[in-house]
């Protein structure tokens, strides 16, 4: 009898404590657990590299290990589908990339950024217009306004569409599989220009084989301080490959806030900044709310470009 009453008493004490603790003191992350980031692209790619650097520098701030799982396929859609199904407890996150906005518009995926909670934006690599060495002295504005120049791109080539929306001039665009195919096409003279991310072509740019002509951003980027933005040259076209973190829909706000704070701290670590700079990735921080707004704007712009 005594035992039972003690048991009941302790139950009452525990439950009142639990309710009293309802002053929103979330214990996250718990010791002994680990956080998983689902990267929807293959190891060795840009998104994977950013995720791994981010994980390395965020671990000390969260106090738990962070594991990267690569779940590839469908241009990211397979990994995102997996992440969307995960328990919304903050222990499973995913890396966002532009396809989380574009694929839904193109009808290739049922999921988009609205199917997740956004945590923060990490980087944004604006498009860089590059030409081969022999076209070093070409005037980039003239080139973009002359439809006889051929672009090496992909379908849809959002960089080129963004430029064309401003210039009104259509270029012939030969679709390639990715930067690994576009860069040789420019180097070999098979196309006149291509828009790439600087990280993809830095080796060739440093060697003077690829010449960066203009950057599709608001401000000049640290990796190319001497290359003007297209905006400076009078064509205000901006488009980039951006990355950030997302969490399954329904992850509590408090947990998102803890994650946001920890990853923001990681972003400001000198080591992280140095590693990103070395790999030629441009850091661009946006808070959870701003990141969501950013993706919404992207969605509107891309819908317009595709006429949808």
């Amino acid at each position: 009898m005594k035992k039972v009453s003690i048991f009941i008493l302790s139950l009452i004490v525990v439950s009142t404590l639990a309710f009293a603790g309802g002053t929103k003191e979330v214990k996250f992350p718990e010791r002994g657990k680990s956080i998983t980031i689902i990267v929807p692209y293959a190891p060795g790619g840009g998104t994977d590299a950013v995720a791994r650097m981010l994980a390395k520098y965020a671990e000390p701030h969260l106090g738990v290990p962070i594991t990267i799982i690569n779940k590839t396929g469908g241009g990211g859609a397979v990994g995102w589908a997996e992440a969307a199904k995960a328990r919304p407890d903050g222990y499973t996150l995913t890396m966002f990339a532009p396809n989380i906005v574009t694929y839904a518009i193109m009808g290739l995926s049922d999921l988009n950024y609205e199917s997740f909670e956004s945590v923060l934006m990490v980087n944004n690599d604006p498009g860089v217009i590059v030409v081969a060495k022999k076209n070093k002295d070409l005037d980039v504005v003239k080139m973009l306004k002359d439809p006889s120049y051929v672009s090496g791109g992909e379908n849809p080539n959002f960089y080129l569409l963004a430029i064309e929306a401003k210039t009104g001039v259509k270029h012939k665009d030969i679709p390639y599989g990715g930067a690994a195919e576009r860069i040789p096409a420019v180097l070999g003279g098979h196309v006149d220009f291509a828009v790439i991310n600087i990280g993809e072509g830095k080796g060739q740019v440093d060697a003077g084989e690829l010449i960066p002509k203009a950057v599709l951003s608001d401000k000049r980027i640290p990796a190319l301080p001497n290359t003007p933005t297209l905006k400076e040259l009078g064509i205000d076209a901006q488009m980039g490959a951006w990355r950030g973190l997302g969490a399954p829909k329904g992850t509590p706000k408090e947990i998102i806030a803890i994650l946001e704070t920890a990853f923001t701290k990681a972003l400001n670590e000198p080591g992280f900044k140095e590693a990103m700079e070395k790999a030629a990735f441009t850091i661009e921080y946006k808070s959870s709310g701003d990141f969501y707004k950013f993706m919404k704007e992207q969605e509107v712009a891309i819908k317009k470009m595709l006429g949808k």
């Binding site: 590299a49 860069i183 040789p184 993809e200 080796g203 060697a207 030629a280």
Partner: peptide, 30 residues
């Protein structure tokens, strides 16, 4: 092509390219 063009010749060298980039080593003529 990986070392001199920074373009992976196949899927294996694509992984190596990732490794080089993580190390901050930009493949290419230089």
């Amino acid at each position: 092509p990986l070392l001199s063009l920074a373009v992976p010749g196949d899927s294996n060298t694509a992984v190596l390219l990732g490794g080089l980039i993580i190390k901050g080593l930009q493949p290419g003529p230089l």
